[in-house]
C-alpha cells in the first residue's frame, strides 16, 4: 500500500454515544451551578432593576483584573413603586447558603412583560424596565434586589394574578434550578390567585413576603425541612 487514503484530511473519529447522537435527542439534563460561578454570572448591577448600583455581583471573590462581566449603567428610572426584596437561602439544617444564586423575572408596573411572548400591546411596555435580575447570596446567605412592584398579570381563563415575582434558585448541591414565586403580603388578589391556589393552603405562606420595619419586603427561601419553600414543577 503506497497510496494515501482518499479521506485522510476529512475522516472523523468513530462515533460513540454522545451529545449529537440522534437516538439521544431530548432535553439537555441540568447540572449544578457549582460554587465558582461568581466571576461568570452575576454582573455588577444585576440585582438592581431600578438604578445603577453594583448590587448582585461578588467582586470580593476573585481578582479585579478578572472581572469581565457587564458594568452597571445609568438609565432613567422605571415607572412604579421602588421596592427592596430580600431574604436568606437556608438549607435543611437552617444554615445559610452562602454560595447560592437567585434570579427574578417580573412584569413592569403596568403588569406587562418585556417579552415577545406577552402579546398584549394594549398594556404599555416601560423602556426603562426589563424585569430580569440576578444575584449571588452574600457571606451570610442573604440575597437582595432593588426593583419595582409589579402590576397584575392575567392568569388562566378570566382570572387575574396577584402581583408576584418569578424566582429561580441555583447553588452548589442543587442539581436542578428550583422555581418558585414571591408574592406581597398586602397584594391585591392573593386570595384568588390561580397559582397560590395550586399550592396547599398550609404552604402558601412560604411564598409571601412580609414588610419589615425598614420598608423592605422579606421572604426567606428554605430549601428543605418543615418550612420548605413551595417549589414548582414546570
Amino acid at each position: 500500500m503506497h497510496t494515501e487514503s482518499p479521506d485522510l484530511e476529512t475522516r472523523n473519529v468513530a462515533p460513540r454515544q454522545d451529545n449529537l447522537d440522534p437516538a439521544l435527542f431530548g432535553q439537555t439534563p441540568s447540572q449544578t451551578v457549582g460554587p465558582y460561578f461568581h466571576y461568570g454570572l452575576p454582573w455588577k448591577g444585576a440585582a438592581d432593576l431600578v438604578g445603577a448600583s453594583e448590587m448582585g455581583a461578588r467582586p470580593d471573590l476573585f481578582p479585579a483584573e478578572h472581572y469581565v462581566l457587564a458594568v452597571a449603567r445609568e438609565h432613567p428610572a422605571p415607572l412604579g413603586e421602588v421596592v427592596e426584596l430580600r431574604g436568606r437561602v437556608l438549607d435543611g439544617e437552617g444554615q445559610a447558603v452562602v454560595d447560592a444564586m437567585v434570579e427574578i423575572w417580573q412584569a413592569n408596573a403596568n403588569g406587562r412583560y418585556a417579552s415577545p411572548s406577552d402579546p398584549r400591546d394594549e398594556v404599555p411596555l416601560d423602556p426603562n424596565f426589563i424585569g430580569f435580575g440576578r444575584t449571588a447570596t452574600d457571606a451570610t446567605g442573604v440575597w437582595r434586589f432593588r426593583t419595582i412592584r409589579p402590576g397584575r398579570v392575567p392568569g388562566p381563563g378570566n382570572s387575574l394574578q396577584a402581583p408576584h415575582v418569578a424566582v429561580s434558585v441555583f447553588g452548589r448541591g442543587l442539581l436542578t434550578r428550583l422555581a418558585t414565586r414571591i408574592y406581597f403580603e398586602d397584594g391585591e388578589g392573593n386570595d384568588t390567585d390561580p397559582v397560590l391556589a395550586a399550592v396547599p393552603a398550609e404552604r402558601r405562606a412560604t411564598l409571601i413576603a412580609h414588610r419589615d420595619p425598614g420598608g423592605a419586603w422579606v421572604r426567606d427561601i428554605v430549601l428543605q425541612g418543615a418550612d420548605e419553600t413551595a417549589f414548582f414543577a414546570l
Binding site: L178, A230, F231, F232, A233
Partner: peptide, 12 residues
C-alpha cells in the same frame, strides 16, 4: 441537605 423533600407543585 439542600434538595427539597416535598414533591414539586404543579402550577398552571
Amino acid at each position: 441537605r439542600r434538595s427539597p423533600q416535598r414533591e414539586l407543585i404543579r402550577i398552571p
